[in-house]
Amino acid sequence: MGVRDAVGAFALAAVVAWLATPLSARLARRLGVIHVPRERDLHERPTPGLGGLAILAAVIAAGLVFLPLQREYLGVLAGAALIALLGALDDRFDLHPVPKLMGQLAAASVPVAAGVYVDHVTLPFLGALDLGPAGPPLTLLGIVAVVNVVNWTDGVDGLAAGVCLIAAVTFAVLALSLDRDAAGVLAALTAGAAAGFLRHNFHPASVFMGDAGSNLLGLLLACVAIQGVLKTAAVVALLFPLMVLAVPAADATFVIAKRIKYRRPVYAPDRWHFHHRFANIGFSQRRTVMYLYGWSLSLALLALALRFVPYSDEAGHLRPGWAALLAVFGAIAVAASVYVVYVLEILKFRRWRERDIQRRVETGELPALSREAIEREIEREIETGEFEAVRGEPGS
């Protein structure tokens, strides 16, 4: 088992997902699982869901062919089936958050009970940290956290599938390089299933994955991270999943912070996700997705560089040339992150402030101003941080 099996698993899963997705859309129409646009949604027409069932079919098919039929991986497949079916029920009946969370915990407990859990982590400069009996429950919570992080990312055509594709390919390369071949195959078939589905889900999407798909992909990525990275002795093992899943994790962290700040239920839907904020400043769905793909890819490349660039020798001394190359990858990731923040915050402020000034000119609160004068005033406000206080929050 190795690279050849991983490539085969990717190909089989991609083909099955590609062929099965139209069938899942047909099933969704028969069952009435149609996503009608709501106020917070970005799609413009009713779209069938249950695409996650096609992803599940691809995962099961490729898994039974290419994965070792060991207890751990049978547990992963069983947990995947359970959480996808739970998601399908949620897509059909819109379950309350509490039973949905209980179902996620139950599904995640299946692979954990089968041995997919972290009993120690390797920390830079500190070595191995034994988690003891806290390992399984902490792993359970971590899997459910990743499930919901991915679920919240699924709000615009192709975003969740594409980000999961990038993450799964990265995990596959990392796992195979660390001689965790089975985990590498699991990551590869996850990537293949996401790729086959993405063919139908990229804007304009003909089908949505729904919670059946996002929950499934989240659980698979969490299990891949555990089996393929966290269980190894690699010094930067803990950093790999943090970087590979940084974009959906950052989105979830920002949204939770906003909801807490404004005293809203953490589970209540809103328009504060990154994809909503891009839409608020006028980005199309495709442009939004490509920006977030690029950000995810820059962080994935940094994770791969940390694995493959020999920036230090066995004694721990830096090799200047290789360290400089690693610094380049780090700079690219930082630049991408800063640029996204610039787009979301500075550009959002510019457009909101321009509309606010124009509104006040129209109502007579301000004298008539040319477009050039408005732009000069906004530039001054950005440079100095001095502008008139307003009520509410711009672009929220």
Rank of each mutant, 00 (worst) to 15 (best):
R4N: 02
F10L: 11
A11D: 04
L12T: 11
L12M: 13
A14T: 07
P22T: 01
R26W: 06
R26P: 01
A28W: 08
L31N: 02
R38F: 07
H43S: 13
E44S: 15
L56F: 09
A61D: 14
A62N: 15
L64D: 04
P68C: 15
P68S: 14
L69V: 13
L69M: 13
Y73C: 04
A78C: 15
A78W: 14
A84H: 11
L86H: 02
G87F: 00
A88T: 08
R92F: 01
L95N: 11
V98N: 08
V98W: 08
M102D: 03
A106H: 02
A113H: 08
A114Q: 10
Y117G: 14
V118Q: 07
T122H: 02
A128V: 10
G132S: 12
G135F: 05
G135C: 12
D157R: 12
G162L: 07
T170P: 05
L176K: 02
R180C: 12
G196C: 08
F197I: 07
L198M: 15
L198D: 09
H200Y: 07
H200C: 10
F202I: 15
S206R: 05
G210W: 00
N215Q: 15
N215K: 01
L217Q: 11
L221Q: 10
A222I: 06
C223T: 01
Q227H: 03
T232H: 00
L239K: 02
L242C: 04
L242Q: 01
V247S: 10
P248S: 01
A250N: 14
T253E: 03
I256T: 07
V266G: 12
W272D: 12
R277L: 11
R277H: 11
I281K: 09
G282V: 13
R286K: 12
R287C: 10
Y291H: 06
L292E: 13
W295Q: 03
L297W: 05
L299Q: 14
F308D: 04
F308M: 05
V309A: 01
Y311K: 03
S312L: 08
D313W: 00
D313K: 01
A315D: 09
G316A: 00
H317F: 02
H317G: 10
R319F: 08
P320S: 12
A323N: 04
L325T: 14
G330R: 04
A335Y: 13
A336G: 05
A336Q: 12
L344C: 10
I346K: 15
K348W: 05
R350P: 09
R351A: 04
E354Q: 14
I357E: 15
E362R: 09
T363P: 01
P367N: 00
L369Q: 13
E372A: 12
E375F: 11
R376A: 15
R380Q: 12
T384E: 03
G385A: 09
G385D: 11
E386F: 07
A389Y: 00
G395E: 09
